[in-house]
């Protein structure tokens, strides 16, 4: 299972880069605001805010994600089969048993979150439990456990909070510019700053999306491969993915900022896919993943 451990270091490095980019963006925005409004306290406020947000996202983003998914915890007693599957695969992977959550959605999907294996959470939808058989479920859980083992969960979870925040920030910025539109004018300097502000407002969501893409589509294929190493039965995950592909149930909690967490894109109704989402696909095409698994020899 070498792939589990080699991939981990690059994910930890990525986390640092994302934090740095986040700090630069937020503090940069604070600087712009303070110039436009001529108020230096905004910079200080931005610095404090950015640092606090980073800390919150590191320590609490898993809880935020779970709250966004309306997930409820599972114990050994309440769902014995699921619990033993997770427990046994964790032993095979050499990981501590993660907390297990179920979200009351009919769509077939699952995700993992948490900052490290000791604080990991695996969440599955009710639909997944109802429609998959044991070996398919094992395949999905092994895939999620690979995300835990190689720390994909750390990167993708903090991204939810930080990227979500940048999106809100640029939104506020746009609105404030709109309101100030016909207001006081103070020569060319202010206008340049205004232009910079507009540029920032347009760029920020793009940067945010790129950051989310930084966690790369490749991670899903990687987790498929190392998950198959855990179960030694790639066909289990392959047939689970086939069922997930054929499933057209919409997800009520689907959200652009958490879409990348799930085993497959929660926006599965092709016609209604939001425009921006189509541009920035977070998952590799499911057909390719199935094909790779079917052709795998272990």
């Amino acid at each position: 299972m070498a792939s589990l451990y080699t991939h981990r270091d690059s994910n930890i490095r990525k986390t640092w880069i994302i934090f740095t980019v986040f700090l630069i963006i937020v503090i940069g925005a604070g600087f712009l605001f303070s110039r436009i409004y001529d108020n230096p306290t905004i910079v200080i406020f931005a610095v404090v805010f950015a640092v606090v947000m980073s800390m919150v996202s590191y320590w609490n983003s898993d809880k935020i994600v779970l709250a966004m998914a309306h997930a409820a915890p599972v114990s050994r007693e309440s769902n014995r089969e699921l619990y033993t599957i997770v427990e046994n695969l964790s032993i095979t992977a050499g990981l501590p048993v993660p907390k297990i959550y179920i979200t009351d959605e009919a769509q077939l999907n699952a995700f993992a979150t948490g900052r490290d294996p000791k604080h990991a959470v695996i969440c599955v939808t009710r639909g997944l439990l109802e429609r998959l058989n044991r070996s398919e479920l094992e395949g999905v859980i092994a895939h999620e456990l690979s995300h835990v083992g190689n720390r994909d969960i750390l990167v993708s979870t903090i991204v939810v909070v930080l990227v979500g925040f940048i999106a809100i920030l640029s939104d506020i910025f746009m609105r404030s510019l709109w309101l100030r539109g016909g207001g006081r004018r103070r020569g060319e300097g202010a206008q340049i700053l205004l232009l910079l502000g507009i540029a920032f407002a347009i760029l920020a969501p793009i940067i945010a999306t790129l950051m989310r893409l930084a966690i790369s589509r490749r991670r899903e294929s990687l987790a498929d491969a190392s998950g198959a190493l855990l179960t030694r039965y790639p066909d289990g995950l392959a047939s689970a993915l086939e069922k997930i592909r054929d499933d057209r149930t919409p997800m009520s909690i689907a959200n652009n900022s958490t879409a990348h967490l799930w085993i497959d894109d929660p926006y599965n109704e092709q016609k209604k896919t939001p425009f921006l989402h189509k541009l920035f696909m977070t998952h590799p095409p499911i057909e390719e993943r199935i094909k790779m698994l079917r052709g795998m020899k272990v």
Partner: peptide, 14 residues
Amino acid sequence: ENKMMAARRFYNST
């Protein structure tokens, strides 16, 4: 028994 098998597989990977 299943857990023993799982533990052996992890041992094998190490």
